[in-house]
Design a protein around this nucleic acid. Structure first.
Lengths: 224, 224, 224, 224
DNA sequence: TATGAATGAGTCTTCATTCAT
DNA sequence: CATGAATGAAGACTCATTCAT
């Protein structure tokens, strides 16, 4: 069941579609369909059809639905999550702005490699009742998160971080600001006066908002 | 099929439980179960059982599954969305900070009244493939959104709004920062050094982050 | 799930086929098919077809395969078993010959009413791994059996019962001698010089063999 | 496809486990699993796993499921049946008591060598619908059975056999009294006052019951 | 010989939906 | 209004069997 995660170990290109085995192709299809219609809304038959195999074949490789979800979690999502968190370097911990910058960049890179990530993350991981939640809870590097939270608290005491924000919520906020617009991408496209919207625009927007806020110069008197 | 939306039209108390008809009870159950297991993961029989009726009764009231979703969208979610957007007052448009503050507060009030909102929003509305998306797209006040975006752009030109942010993404960012942590509430609880986390903490965090950023005083050189 | 067992409570005729509900008809079909092909060899679809319903209907009435087996055990076989054991009267306990006679007669009456009994008994109840075994173990009146065994032991001490037999095996032996030939009925029919074989012949054979043995007059020297 | 039946042709020891080929090991597993869960309840994959081969291998050796059943019947059960019937010697035919004694002993010896026999016999051979029935019907020495029946009839005319018993049913009765308690062995163990029960006890019980009956001294008037 | 891969047919089960009452 | 009964279609999963290697 173990697989080396070629995709995230290096910065490697994905291997040629031809050389991928059926197993990988099934996982690809599952990932995409799960992102598109939700896990509960996707049948094994749909995955099989999309990947050009019979549904019996899906059972052959993964045993059952649960086994497929396990594989998706372990072989596709866990590496992505690891990759994202590996992005917050030790040196960055001392500089809150770097924490944000590096984390945002890792998120965007992960999404680049796996476009289904934002939707799976918001639907199946973040949500209680999400079908990948339990499976990934153990894979999220809680101690890493704790380290970052501590670093932010320390910086807050030193006065380099906004004293009003709540350190434990920061990483969630970053993920939210980066991932959710991607999820809603096409919805935003419906807005009439929407200008060109791409990952670069999103990156600048997210960094500016997270680091300096909407109205940085403004005095802070009337806030609540 | 249309119903007045007693809940959000005024600030009125919800009507006495007794007076609610079966129809409303079915909608309540549906809303909660949809939020908990996703729409695709919820059967009519579950909703029927939870609301103490037979599943034939659900069909009697709503025709079919689609009809139930229509009703949930029109009678429960549309009013909530209307309520949220109604919060950005005309006067606020001139003051970006007020836009944010009022919007955040409306969001939190809406969640207070309908705790299922964050999960339904991220799963079934925001996500492409979400089963309420199409139904609500027409109900989102796009012209209102356009107005706000224009106001933010104008303020940006006047120098009262961070020139690096992207106005069309602002409202999405606000919703993300407020709603997602609520969705992930219990997940965040698993973090060891998590302090007390409640709506008030979230409100201050969201407002501080959105308005002033994580590191407001810092110079802005390293931002690449 | 409880049903009065009309069939065995009195000596009543079975109710008219017409008035039986679908549920009963499904149980009838199941009983017959289970006896014919074994439980493991019978599909729900076969039962459904035989009883003129859809297989979804079988699930509607019994929940699942296990539920159907439960119903067969509780509503059909348990009453038959009760009926058989109820046949050994209190007065009979003092007279070993009456125990045998009454038990044999009850067995034959039960088979008369439920011709599937011998096959189900030998395949699915008696056999370890039989699918009704666990379900019926609790229903067999063990204390009644114990009473009979005690009575036989006592009679053995008084000299009215063959001192060489083993009382705990007696009831099993009786059932075996009566039931197994019925199971193998058609097989026996293949034997060339087989005379007319019917229940009456079987009854006399069983009683004679069980009570007096094959060679009653013979001295008992060579028996090692 | 034919194999010499080493096990029953002589009194030979079973060959060393090592020298048995895979084919024999598959048959062993099949025999045991068939006895345990019934033939219909046993899959080829289970047999393969139990015998340490792949299920493709089972097909390689036996062609298909039917072929495996053929082999079980021809190579394992037929020899056992032959062995049992070979036990009724020519000399015994003149003495009914010897017929019984020798047949009982052969049955017990056969069971000793093949503990799965009683269960397979009652489930899959004796029962109509039993999956080995057709295959073994031709293998049962019908003419031998006819000979024995004739001998018993003759003895009955001569007065050395109970005139009330039915000669064609005698051999079935013997098998029933010997085999069925073995099948139900563990079930009998559940009975509270059950004394030690082993093959020797069973042998004496069966012989005593079959030869002399439960109440040999009793007068034979009330037997109706 | 031996096996991993592959599959069509079938099994149990669920579910939205309908309808007579 | 309300429901128990009924069902067709579809879902997950199993299994005997085949085949290229």
């Amino acid at each position: 069941m173990k697989k080396t995660n070629r995709k995230y170990s290096h910065q490697g290109r994905p291997p040629a579609k031809e050389s991928e085995g059926r197993r990988e192709r099934i996982l690809d299809s599952a990932l995409t369909l799960f992102a598109g219609h939700g896990i509960a809304g996707t049948t094994i038959a749909q995955i099989a059809k999309d990947s050009g195999v019979t549904s019996a074949m899906v059972h052959y490789y993964f045993g059952n639905r649960e086994g497929l979800l396990d594989a998706i979690a372990a072989e596709r999502l866990a590496p992505a999550i690891e990759y994202i968190w590996a992005g917050v370097s030790e040196e960055a911990l001392a500089e809150p702005r770097r924490i944000v910058t590096e984390f945002v960049d890792r998120l965007l890179e992960a999404v680049e490699k796996m476009p289904q990530l934002p939707q799976l993350w918001s639907r199946e991981i973040l949500n209680p009742g999400g079908m990948l939640r339990e499976r990934l809870l153990t894979l999220v590097p809680l101690e890493r998160l704790a380290t970052v939270i501590s670093a932010l608290s320390l910086a807050q005491q030193k006065g380099t971080v906004n004293p009003m924000i709540s350190p434990p919520l920061v990483m969630t906020s970053i993920m939210a600001v980066v991932m959710l617009p991607i999820t809603a991408w096409d919805m935003l496209g419906k807005i009439p006066i929407m200008p060109a919207l791409d990952k670069e625009v999103l990156r600048h927007h997210a960094l500016a908002l997270l680091l300096d806020g909407l109205c940085p110069e403004k005095s802070r008197e009337g806030q609540q």
